[in-house]
Design a protein around this nucleic acid. Structure first.
Length: 108
DNA sequence: GCAATGACTGGTA
DNA sequence: TTACCAGCCATTG
């Protein structure tokens, strides 16, 4: 293989997968951090959170929430506004996981 | 190479 | 119901 000198994005392998998957989440649906790690068959929820913290701004980060439906720590208000605009099922706590959780396959 | 970090999770009190 | 604790594991310093 030839090393490509024009590679400005030395992203960690995991980061690229996370961003790609998050970008695939349909509007109005969400995944938990643990779900993302499980679908990627790699790492864990903490690793997904770290990727979002660093590179999340480049994708629909608000569609990734905590397993209990709470919004990302430190971005609750902003995420909430995004979900309201997309029509995501919400509860008083955050996202209604029973209705908004995406299975990663397209099944409603 | 080693130690600490973190947009987490599930279980227990 | 809420609050706290230990485990988790790639990435970063």
């Amino acid at each position: 293989m030839h090393p490509d000198p024009a590679e400005p994005a030395p992203l960690p392998a995991f980061a690229g997968r996370v961003i790609d998957l998050v970008d695939t989440i349909p509007s109005g649906r969400v995944l938990s951090y643990g779900d993302v790690a499980e679908l990627l068959e790699y790492g864990g929820p903490r690793q997904v959170g770290q990727v979002m913290s660093r590179y999340g701004s480049a994708t629909s980060w608000w569609r990734v929430v905590r397993a209990d439906g709470r919004l990302p720590q430190g971005h609750e208000a902003e995420a909430r506004a995004r979900h309201l605009a997309e029509g995501t099922p919400l509860t008083s706590r955050g996202v209604d996981m029973r209705r908004a959780r995406w299975d990663g396959v397209g099944g409603s």
